[in-house]
Design a protein around this nucleic acid. Sequence first.
RNA 1: GCUAGCUUUUCGGACAGCU
Length: 245
Amino acid sequence: IITYNTLISSCAASGSALEGEEVFKDMEQCGCEPDLWTYNSMISVYGRSGKDEEAWELLDAIKERGFCPDAVTYNALLYAFARNGKVEKVDSVRMQMASAGFRADEITYNTMIHMYGKKGMHENALLLYKEMATSGCRPDAVTFTVLVDSLGKAGFIMEAAQIFSEMSEARVRPTLRTFSALICGYAKAGMLEEAEETYDCMIRTGIEPDSLAYSVILGVLQKSNKIEKALELCQNMVQEGLKPD
RNA sequence: GCUAGCUUUUCGGACAGCU
């Protein structure tokens, strides 16, 4: 059963709903009883491939089978709707989650904040972020990264930078993705010096750029005509075994 | 506080070009 569950979750990761369904059917035919983990993984399979209705139906299947949906179930379902931007559905899952006795956790909040960010509803995203503090959740690296990313993309660079500084105040370490998001935000806003400073700060923190981070900073250097530095970085990149694209 | 681990859920991340 663990083998099947593992197979199903790798289908979720690769976004192939059909394969996931097949494994699930195989499993039942072999007389292997799906457990809650299997169902949760299937919800994730559907969620990640945009099939929110199918994911929703599994909640009933879980109950019919006599299983009790857990926080993972609700978070996965929430993700399925959030991904498709269905705010009302997300709210209703959240209510169900609450009435089943589960508090919104970090993942619940992050999923919702991400959804609002993608929809450009930044006020709602920020509201949830504030709500986290009062409801006993601590914003984590994902929370901050999602906010910096969506604010930066939307051109609210000052707000993004503000969130970034709140991150250090909260003593949450920025990740490669957080830095990349902020650098992109600055680049998009045309604030090339700030972008470069942020990159240098990242290096000082001891974070190794990946090929994406390199592309971002190389773009910045190109725009500010710092060709020598760009070439130098490019060499570093090759030395580290990354391919410039 | 540090370190390590974890079968399932949250960062489909960038840049460029075109419209």
